[in-house]
Design a protein around this nucleic acid. Structure first.
Lengths: 227, 227, 227, 227
DNA sequence: AGTTAATCGAGACGGTACGTCGAGTCTTCGA
DNA sequence: TCGAAGACTCGACGTACCGTCTCGATTAACT
């Protein structure tokens, strides 16, 4: 019940398995994706997520993933170009499955009370951030994205931005209802409460509590409301 | 002229070189820090920063640092426990030297106009974030801190928090002048404009411009000012 | 034309490459010897022998062997457990190839004149001991075998004993012809002329000449002949 | 009661500690031997012999010797040039002390019965070869001497040859008594029984027993006696 | 007896090689 | 033809010692 990872992502509706490796090496014949083993793909995702959870990202190796997945190394190198890419896809897949489990009905709540709606969603986000099932891989991916520009952009585009877009919609709705000033850019406004939360999570620069997010909403909305 | 790395850090005034390795291995006798070679320490810092700038953090190896510094590998392993630790100290050292170059006179501006002061400082911060001299190592450290908890805490404690504290002081001053509501927690309030900037930088989730930070200040202060 | 290293060794006819590492480490899965690279094996032998000849045994390193052979270090460690083992196999291989070159026809001469036959063979052995092609690796192996019991036993069993056996046969033949007393143990008797030669070579405790070996044979046979 | 190591060596009568390093480095000022610490010298000998006995020659390191002797590494490098040299001197010292313990009265037995005398001495030599107190360092030195020419020559000159000389004397005495032919070279003749024993010990190429050495003497003397 | 200079214990230093791990490539074999 | 298996080359890891080089603190020979 939060947009961080379980939202149905409209732009990415039930993405089918990629049909070509992320960065097709030029000299190599493209593998034939129609013959790809679905079973191996799943096993690799599971192994990757499990290992990152158990030993952390840096100590998760391709060899270990292959071995635990009961798969040859070549099968990994055939379809992905890097460890980060494997984990990113595995995580996207995990998010999608989580969303599907939740059903397709989730939408950003719009009770008419913007503050209440935001607090609700942010509280759920906090809960999810502390869920160990998501924490290890998400943190690993975020870290990798900081340093690996290509991976970072994919992470943002595929995962982060679609979810932020839901906040944009909700803020636009609030603008129409006169709860937020018309001259406010919702894409920037949402950062006032989302980014502090994100930074505390990423950098451990402060405690993550429901009170904290409530406070953020209160402080931020004060500056966005009409006088 | 920005608190991101060149501020004089009062709690850490001209820190002398660490006298013991960060995580003393239990079985090994502690090296005698009074006999440590200052020359090697400096050369290692320089080599580490240069290499991270040139080839990036993951391709910077201990061997390459040692080789470029003209130092035996063991001299690195004697005093640090990991690549991240070396780079962290090198970066802290760099920050301190930068601060000392600037002279001790830098203080957070307090013209009486809070918005103007904040905008000034945040613009400088943006400039610094885009300075390649700092970008590579800072980004590498931040990424490493996301994944390596101990490193992350040191990074936050030694570097980030002292600088955020300067914002806290400025906001308290504004509270005394009646420009900010008394019931606002300055430590949280500052995140309204600092964290969005940090997130955009870390995750490349949006452009970093002066207009952007100005907007952040405008939006945020609106909610903090007395009605 | 001497039994020291070029004799066809009947007990060891054209030994194929070992199929398992000498001392299989217990925790590691045994490598599959059917997929072993013959090319690498040969290159390693050549590099090892060449290096020992050039810089001596103690300064011959596994890294240097790997590098000169154009082979990864792991490929050496996969199939051998020590430098000595590599060199031993290389030397055994060299001996076998030398024997094969010579053709299979070499037999211990038996002209009926025992003294003459022994002098002939021992003179050839002296020549071989002074041949730099064999000297360096043979000396290195012998030294290593003195200190490393397992290696020493292999050296003796695989190389030394088969050749001594040829002397045993010749002495038995002499016994049948009545040139040597029947109550003499040939395995001990042969040491009277072989061991002094070996010791002078190993310990440099005296010059190695044809006159010397002739003298040895004369002295020794005196005690073995019937009265 | 054997010439192998406990004989008083006339050419080397109670050698005082060397006064200069074996191979004085040309550029370095010669250390002043009058101020040398006798205590350190002794401790180094003891540590070296103990370590070779415990872990073998190759795993005996200079650092370990220094550490166990409670001595700085430089103290070793000041007076010796290599591990082999240290051990050689330590072993020579050990031999001398053993000889002194035995008293100065030991001489090669000369009862008039050459065969009996030789058998007696060779049996004692066998016993000594199997004494673990001597075995490890002696074997280590012999091995090192095979490969390191300089060390080998010192070993032979200082230790081996003086003892062989005792056999020479005994054989000359036998020649005068008419028990050995006059035209026999005693230096070569002694190798007939000494070298086989030495080789079996060095190369483990056969069992070392009293019967064996008795047999050697019988076989060899047969060829040396007058007809 | 006090001075002084060399040796001493200690150990940090620049190096080299170790033996191991994992990356990414390539080959073999079975399904 | 793809996948499991794993041998291959390569590069970096973190460790062990090498032989050199300071450092005080003895310590033994000379004032």
């Amino acid at each position: 019940m939060s947009p961080t990872s379980s939202a149905p992502v409209p732009d990415q509706p039930a993405t089918p398995p990629r049909t070509t490796p992320g960065n097709q090496a030029p000299g190599r014949p493209a593998p034939d994706s129609t013959r790809r083993s679905e079973r191996s793909r799943r096993a690799i995702y599971d192994a990757a997520l499990a290992l990152v959870g158990e030993v952390g990202y840096p100590r998760t190796t391709i060899e270990a993933i292959a071995s635990r997945a009961g798969v040859g190394k070549q099968t990994i190198y055939r379809w992905w170009t890097s460890k980060g890419e494997v984990l990113l896809e595995a995580f996207l897949d995990l998010s999608q499955r989580a969303a599907e489990e939740l059903g397709e009905e989730w939408v950003f709540p719009d009770t008419g009370d913007l503050a209440a709606d935001l607090k609700l969603v942010l509280r759920a986000t906090v809960d999810e951030m502390l869920d160990p099932r998501f924490e290890a891989p998400a943190r690993a991916l975020a870290a990798q994205g900081v340093v690996d520009e290509q991976l970072g952009r994919t992470f943002v585009t595929q995962l982060l931005e679609p979810q932020l877009q839901l906040y944009v919609e909700r803020l636009k709705s609030a603008q129409e209802q006169g709860q937020v000033r018309r001259d406010v850019d919702p894409r920037i406004a949402l950062e006032l409460f989302v980014s502090p939360l994100a930074q505390r999570w990423l950098q451990r620069s402060g405690p993550l509590t429901h009170e904290y997010t409530d406070t953020l909403v209160d402080y931020a909305l004060g500056g966005l409301s009409p006088r």
